[in-house]
Design a protein around this nucleic acid. Structure first.
Length: 755
DNA sequence: TGCGCAGGTGTTTTT
DNA sequence: CACCTGCGCA
């Protein structure tokens, strides 16, 4: 038997050996999913399958990279280089570069990140003279994005009566029109947003039979990781790609489906089994990661969900430590507790920083921990937030590169036309926009007819100089490699000089970031091709791949020994010996947005499950009684998920009392009066109030002290005080027994006036 | 055109 | 609280 087969358990081996026909692997957390996928690919190559004909799609670059490295290691030769392994987005962008012409895009098309996309939407909203408060870019972007993820065109969007009614109800009836204008503008700009990479791939396969058969023949074996996170567009693409050979292998875990807000649908798992008659389903249920206490707790949690494929995840490991439940008085105390616990872990248990991760629900929660870790002299790294390429100075530079590679890219031109300052103001920009619109030409084409627009004097000279400069760069595109070109751009544009002149600390950091960017371009230019035949290492391909890179992906020095801080979403697929899961409080986790809907709540619970199953040996679950949010102090109950943990696996010695959380107040605060003594509340009880049938929230501005009101969860009560600014109003309400007095943030809570 | 200040406004989660 | 926007002034 081959070496790689020996180390597999029976089910894993069956999955590896089942190479022909549709296969679905339901892989529980920590059940060796990646091992199976990589072994399966190695096995295919052993059987003589041409490595060029294997496609594996993942959701993160990191997962793709890991798979590739592991296969390389297993094979011991360079065959792995020919494999098509990458994220949906990056693989499709490579294919679309080759096929761009069929779809009417330039092969150097730009990829718009979320910021670029929102900026285009803002422009359109302004052009249509709509109110940018009702038509907020983020809202519109989300509407358009979810439409695209369901393969809706703007025409279908405009004709769908449900959608139209929904938009009308939210007072935004013109989103369909904005969608249309946005699509047309992106196309004109030679740009695709993230969703377009999927949509256009779908269009390519469904409208161009030659393209379809080309890729169907090419990819004889198709593998999909994290299948539970695919959306409708991805589902259809996978189905089309695999239709000829039907050698499709999907790996997923319904219990870890946490991306429905991005259009992912667990339904795809169930649909897969219906789509193919001869589908083989294999479950991987042995967990190799966590101790039994941790695993049992996770199982208990997930069993509360109605919507799931039943699995029996088990382990041979010992029960291990109990889960430590920690209650702190404030968010800062929570930070301090974690820092202290980490120090202790390192001293007593000889753990490294690398062995430890702090997980939270939202990025904003990282601050208290950053502070406490810094104070405790513990090296850490935060994942998430802005990717390197989204930082202002880096993106400015990239926009130079973008408009050289693709002069249709209006967003890029507008961003740099007056940076560094060259006397081209807003009025001028607007004139150019209007001219381009009226004559139905691109922004760049308009810039090449300056006289026709009637510019004179200093403005004309400034514009002419800009256009000449960009043309000069474009002329170098074929003569110089990406790095040489970038160097020239840095010099001639004055950007490097501008940043160099700034000697403040931040200025220095910005200058260094720019140098780092130049280095990365250099590195890219000098690395030999290894990615299969479609990759060319020029400026265009460089630009396309960096837009798809996230913060988690540029792990420059992996041997850095740091504690890792990240959201639970970002932690998926990772494992650590020690996990601190923090901020486990109602309104944070489950999030305020997901508390009132069964499906949303189940997704939060899956998220909780994902968090717990990251831990190999030790797990802390922590919450605070008081924390600052939006600048004011709020009080949260411990999360309902804490109550769902099995009591016998919990170590309560850190003073945490999930059911009766009395604050251990001992003058930790200067302004004691500001903190309302919290009533002892069993919050499972608090949830028993069912809102009146016709419950309708009233405008918080109408509330007054002394009024009797109804709260959806806490029931009826009387307003004692109202305080804080109107945009963050806090009411102290004396609720009827057994709830008692509570502070309520009106931004979140919905109150209905009774009398 | 650019800068400083006041005021408003917002937090899920991400390729 | 922290960030962004818009406005008034130099």
């Amino acid at each position: 038997m081959q070496e790689y087969l020996k180390s597999l358990n029976e089910n894993q081996r069956e999955a590896v050996l089942h190479t022909e026909g549709p296969l679905m692997i339901v892989a529980g957390a920590g059940s060796g999913k990646t091992k199976v996928l990589t072994s399966r690919i190695a096995h295919l190559i052993h059987l003589g399958v041409d490595s060029f004909r294997i496609l594996a799609l993942t959701f993160t670059n990191k997962a793709a990279k890991e798979m590739k490295e592991r296969i390389e290691h297993m094979l011991g030769n360079s065959e792995a280089r020919n494999l098509y392994i990458g994220t949906f987005h990056s693989v499709f962008s490579r294919i679309l570069r080759v096929e761009a012409e069929r779809l009417g895009y330039p092969s150097n098309f730009t990829i718009y990140d979320t910021d670029d996309a929102k900026s285009v939407i803002k422009t359109i909203v302004k052009e249509k003279n709509l109110d940018d408060k009702t038509y907020k870019a983020s809202v519109i972007y989300n509407r358009i994005s979810s439409a695209k993820n369901s393969l809706y065109t703007y025409v279908q969007y405009q004709q769908d009566s449900d959608i139209q009614q929904e938009d009308a109800r939210s007072n935004r009836p013109l989103i369909g029109q904005i969608f249309e204008a946005y699509s047309k503008r992106c196309f004109k700009n030679g740009a695709m947003d993230f969703d377009d990479l999927l949509v256009n791939m779908y269009i390519l396969l469904s409208n161009f039979p030659e393209a379809l058969s080309k890729y169907q023949m090419k990819f004889r074996y198709v593998m999909i990781d994290e299948y539970q996170d695919t959306n409708l567009a991805q589902y259809h693409i996978v189905k089309l790609l695999g239709a000829m050979h039907e050698n499709i292998c999907v790996v997923g875990d319904d219990a870890q489906s946490i991306y429905s807000f991005r259009g992912a649908s667990m339904e795809n798992i169930f649909q897969f089994q219906k789509d193919y008659e001869d589908v083989k389903v294999i479950k991987l249920e042995q967990n190799y990661r966590s101790t039994r206490n941790i695993l049992d707790a996770a199982n208990k949690i997930i069993s509360k969900n109605e919507n799931q494929i039943k699995k029996n995840l088990w382990t041979e490991k010992e029960s291990g430590d109990k889960i430590r439940l920690v209650c702190s008085f404030t968010d800062n105390d929570e930070g301090k507790f974690v820092a202290d616990a980490i120090t202790e872990l390192k001293i007593r248990n000889h753990q490294q920083n690398n062995d430890i991760a702090i997980l939270y629900r939202t990025n904003a929660q990282s601050r208290a921990f950053e502070e406490s870790l810094r104070r405790g002299n513990i090296a850490y790294k935060i994942y998430g937030g802005l990717s390197f390429y989204q930082r202002k100075e880096v993106k400015d530079f990239i926009c130079y590169l973008r408009c050289v590679a693709n002069p249709q890219d209006e967003e890029a031109i507008k961003r740099i036309i007056n940076y560094p300052v060259r006397g081209i103001g807003n009025t001028t920009l607007n004139k150019i926009s209007v001219f381009a619109q009226e004559n139905n030409i691109t922004y760049w084409q308009a810039l090449n007819q300056l006289e026709a627009m009637g510019f004179k004097g200093a403005t004309l000279t400034a514009l002419q100089n800009f256009v000449m400069m960009i043309r000069h760069f474009q002329g170098l595109l074929d003569k110089k490699n990406a790095y040489e070109l970038a160097e020239e751009i840095g010099k001639l544009s004055g950007l490097v000089k501008e940043l160099y002149a700034d000697k403040t600390v931040e200025g220095l950091a910005r200058y260094e970031n720019l140098q780092e960017l130049l280095n990365s371009i250099k590195e890219y230019t000098e690395t030999p091709t290894e990615d299969g035949e479609l990759v060319e290492r020029n400026l265009g391909s460089y630009l396309q791949q960096i837009t798809l890179l996230t913060d988690t992906d540029n792990e420059n020095d992996p041997d850095q020994n740091t504690v890792k801080l990240m959201t639970i979403h970002a932690s998926k697929g990772l494992e650590f010996p020690n996990i601190f899961l923090v901020g486990v409080e109602e309104t944070i986790f489950p999030s305020m947005m997901s508390m009132y809907d069964r499906e949303d709540l189940e997704e939060e619970r899956r998220l909780f499950y994902v968090a717990i199953t990251r831990a190999k040996e030790k797990l802390w679950i922590s919450y605070a009684n008081n924390r600052y949010r939006f600048g004011s102090l709020v009080q949260n109950d411990p999360s309902r998920f804490i109550d769902e943990l099995p009591a016998e696996m919990i170590d309560n010695s850190q003073g945490a009392k999930p059911r009766f959380n009395t604050p251990k107040a001992k003058g930790l605060f200067g302004n004691e009066n500001a903190i309302q003594q919290k009533k002892v509340v069993n919050h499972t009880q608090t949830a028993t109030h069912t809102a009146t049938v016709n419950f309708k929230a009233d405008d918080p501005a109408k509330l007054n002290e002394g009024m009797r009101v109804e709260h959806q969860r806490f029931g009826f009560g009387k307003i004692i005080t109202l305080e804080g600014p109107m945009n963050n109003r806090i009411a102290t309400i004396n609720f009827d027994a057994p709830i008692g007095q509570k502070k309520i943030m009106l931004n979140y809570a919905k109150l209905s006036i009774v009398s």
